[in-house]
Design a protein around this nucleic acid. Sequence first.
DNA 1: AAAACATATTGACAATTATCGATATGTCGA
DNA 2: TCGACATATCGATAATTGTCAATATGTTTT
Lengths: 97, 97
Amino acid sequence: MKNNYKNYALSMKALSDETRIKIVEMLSHGELCACKILEAFNITQPTLSYHMKILCDSGLISNRKDGSMTKYSINIENLQELRNFIDIIDENMNTKS
Amino acid sequence: MKNNYKNYALSMKALSDETRIKIVEMLSHGELCACKILEAFNITQPTLSYHMKILCDSGLISNRKDGSMTKYSINIENLQELRNFIDIIDENMNTKS
DNA sequence: AAAACATATTGACAATTATCGATATGTCGA
DNA sequence: TCGACATATCGATAATTGTCAATATGTTTT
């Protein structure tokens, strides 16, 4: 089992902001471009761009260029990684030592 | 399904620090007092106290006084809450809309 | 009651974060 | 090619975070 605490912390940090949590929820229903995401929030375009960068850097989401638009989607494998952490904690708690 | 994004963000923030992630892993093997946790890190006692407060405030861990010691343990229900978030994202992704 | 121990709180500070306006870059349609 | 659109980057700034030394609080031992 990988003891990649630093990676876990990075993913958690990416999700430690309410705006970013909501973005991930939005993307769970399917790929979206930045402009569509922007409509849902009361933030400026540069601020959204900043948040998208953090989410991408964490690996939780991916992006692809489609013409002049950037489309974002969830990276399911990295989300599973996060679940693994919780699973490990859970298993440890249920293990009589 | 509760749309408690603020709560999710709070829990994620509590786990967004490598030290705190490690502390949770330590506690998954059973209750520990602050002094035992402190031994595992290269930080001062006030810094650990600060981290423990953040973890407690998030609800992810609980504490109880035992004489002059404070003993910490994981609050499994709140950890499950976090898993719920991932589960919801997962379900959304697998739902043809 | 005094000393030793365990933990929490306070005040200070450097580093990081979230935000914005301004501007740059790249794409598309007329 | 020019203007409109979509997004990214830059520079500035206020707020938050992680850390420490010093100190306070509460408990146990002698």
